[in-house]
């Protein structure tokens, strides 16, 4: 990672992570088993598109660690990594995409970036679920199916809602600067 981290970038990541915590309190929809739809990913995406993949992963890491401190459910050491820092860190891969088309933000390219990052997060959550079930549930259950259905049921709507929000907020921020 780049050794020169500008003060401005740090301040922006710090504030964005605080925003993610705040947005996580505004639940758009709650699942009976605990998953919920919120805009917590939005600030991480904004940082990613403004500062690139490294900054995006950093903000995801900081956000995951904060969630961990606010009271995490740790049932397995590997689950800790897979549930807290990693799903948010991996959102940074959205920074690998070029979202501009002839100087303007392209909504199609943005969709590709958000979708890829969101699906990567889904993969991490599914793995976490599989590890939980395989260490706590009896053998012979089809853990992959359970985990995919459970996680996709709240992550797919989350990705869609976050994409729409990123589209609006990033344009508003560009016009404002």
């Amino acid at each position: 990672m780049d050794n020169k981290i500008s003060t401005r970038m740090m301040a922006e990541i710090g504030v964005a992570v605080a925003l993610a915590v705040v947005l996580n309190f505004i639940k758009l929809w709650r699942m009976p088993q605990g998953g919920s739809v919120s805009l917590e990913m939005l600030p991480i995406f904004i940082v990613t598109f403004r500062w690139g993949i490294g900054a995006g992963m950093f903000s995801g890491l900081a956000y995951g660690l904060l969630q961990l401190m606010f009271g995490a459910y740790i049932i397995h050491p590997v689950q800790l990594i897979l549930d807290y820092p990693l799903p948010y860190m991996i959102l940074g891969i959205a920074g690998l995409f070029n979202i501009y088309k002839s100087g303007k933000i392209s909504s199609v390219k943005l969709l590709g970036a958000v979708l890829t990052a969101g699906l990567a997060r889904l993969v991490v959550h599914v793995l976490s679920g599989v590890i939980f079930f395989s260490s706590y549930a009896p053998e012979g259950q089809n853990v992959w199916i359970y985990s995919i259905i459970y996680n996709a049921s709240f992550l797919i709507p989350t990705i869609i809602v976050n994409y729409l929000a990123v589209l609006i907020v990033i344009k508003a921020l560009e016009n404002n600067n």
């Binding site: 990672m1 740090m10 710090g14 504030v15 992570v17 605080a18 950093f58 903000s59």
Partner: peptide
């Protein structure tokens, strides 16, 4: 960059109530 990470988290903690 461990110190930068903790600085960002400290900033976040400071700004959560404000935001």
């Amino acid at each position: 960059p461990a110190s930068e990470l903790s600085m960002m988290m400290t900033i976040a903690l400071r700004f959560i109530p404000t935001l």
